[in-house]
């Protein structure tokens, strides 16, 4: 009886460990990424464009973590640290994104001081 219950628990555990198939993660992050791209291409407010770029980067972060988990589960028997580099990459993306935002917001503020607007339709002075 107890043996049977134990094997049930193990079966439940392995089902939990397996989790969602990787495809769902790929579709979710591609969808987020596409929303980001569409936002960058259609919105006219510099700050919203910037938010959309952040959304693209975060979609990539999500995908990297999912892939990292997947490679870890597949190779953990061979290499205990398999797949950790994907999660490390996420930290680097966060650092770089923070640097980019600090520079980007400074540039937007600089522009706002001169023209009192953050509308990118204004960016046409150089077109001639």
């Amino acid at each position: 009886m107890s043996h049977k219950k134990g094997s049930q628990l193990i079966a439940q555990g392995s089902k939990l460990k397996k989790g969602m198939p990787i495809n769902y993660y790929i579709f979710l992050s591609l969808a987020l990424f596409a929303i980001g791209i569409v936002g960058v291409l259609t919105r006219r407010n510099a700050i919203i464009i910037f938010m959309c770029i952040e959304l693209m980067l975060n979609a990539v972060n999500l995908l990297l973590v999912a892939f990292s988990k997947m490679h870890h589960a597949a190779n953990v028997a061979v290499n205990a640290t398999a797949g950790t580099d994907g999660q490390l990459f996420v930290f680097f993306i966060m650092v770089v994104a923070a640097a980019e935002v600090s520079v980007g917001l400074a540039i937007i503020v600089m522009m706002y001081r001169n023209i009192h607007s953050v509308d990118v339709n204004f960016l046409n002075r150089l077109k001639h």
Binding site: G36, V40, I49, L57, V120
Partner: peptide
């Protein structure tokens, strides 16, 4: 110069997003 900088930043960050994907 402002315009060039903002344009470069937005498009550069966008292409970085593509590269990361």
């Amino acid at each position: 110069s402002n315009e060039a900088s903002l344009k470069y930043l937005l498009l550069g960050a966008f292409s970085t997003g593509l590269m990361l994907m």
